[in-house]
Design a protein around this nucleic acid. Structure first.
Lengths: 164, 164
DNA sequence: ACATAAAATGAATGTGCGTTCATTTTTGCG
DNA sequence: CGCAAAAATGAACGCACATTCATTTTATGT
């Protein structure tokens, strides 16, 4: 494809990014929701979500790079779209956490906005590290240890009371 | 200051960033270490570290912006310096976690490399959200709730056995 | 096979940003 | 002051990258 060809289909670079993200976002979030629906417990939903999140970014490195550059730019070309994505992620996380709270498996005293940043931040950093390693190792294998951290934290709170 | 003046002191833009980060990194990590030394328990050290981390980024918005843009660029101008910073952060986190493990307040089964991404990712995301909000609210006030999440996670593991 | 429309091409142009350097301004000292 | 050295200036340059458009290539229908 020649340099100018793309301008027959898109207005400018911003427009290209806009359409690319809009398309990709729809497709990826549909998959996220699928994963969440397929699982029963909130913990399983979170695990599936993050596995899929890492999986999709591993599968499409170009998307991963553009996403990471764009979301951390000072002046973002696609501010509204990125905000919409953040909102969608918040919704998914909220749904999972609220279910977990009803099940009694997740804490009641959680500020959902912060939990979303806590989860998305950790996932993004894992992806970022992977990207800058040149994508040598399997990204999805990070999912389970990461989810374990997200749910249990780094603190040690003995689970069994069998200490006699 | 005129456009060209800075080139009397630095070779090029890369050189400017290099020196800026080198200087800033030294100063900030010195403060981090101070915070860690001042606290007794591992939990307190982590809380101090993150308070100071958020505090320093809040105090110097320009640094925060450049840091966030640079560390997420595809081709990073200062790859080695950024890697060095990541290493320093890993060292601090490792030191804290290892102390916590000896105290019995932190889990023994932790992969330190992942814990570093888990912590740094969450902190970075909190800063990123703050930056894109225009820095309207107090960033440091996020420290305590965030540390609580990092240590305890989002899972609900009843602490008291007084049920009955 | 030919005509016409549709699509693609890539050289040329515009633009923003990093960088240079001849000139101007400021500083320090007798 | 006066004068030389040091520092600062900002117009001008160059380069990378976004964009345009006259021309060429490909597709479609009769």
């Amino acid at each position: 494809m020649a340099d100018g060809t793309i301008y027959l289909y898109f207005k400018n670079k911003n427009d290209i990014l806009q359409h690319f993200f809009e398309h990709k976002t729809k497709s990826v979030f549909a998959k996220f929701k699928e994963e969440v629906e397929q699982a029963g417990t909130a913990n399983d939903k979170l695990r599936n979500l993050i596995r899929r999140h890492l999986g999709e970014f591993q599968k499409d490195r170009h998307m991963a790079i553009v996403y990471h550059v764009e979301t951390h730019q000072n002046i973002r070309l696609m501010e509204p779209l990125i905000k919409e994505m953040a909102k969608m992620y918040l919704d998914i996380v909220s749904e999972i956490v609220e279910q977990g709270q009803q099940e009694g498996t997740m804490r009641k005293d959680l500020y959902l906005g912060l939990v979303k940043r806590y989860i998305l931040g950790a996932v993004d950093e894992v992806i970022n590290t992977w990207l800058h390693s040149g994508g040598k190792y399997d990204l999805v294998s990070m999912a389970d240890p990461l989810v374990d951290l997200l749910i249990r934290g780094i603190g040690n709170f003995e689970t069994d009371n069998e200490t006699v």
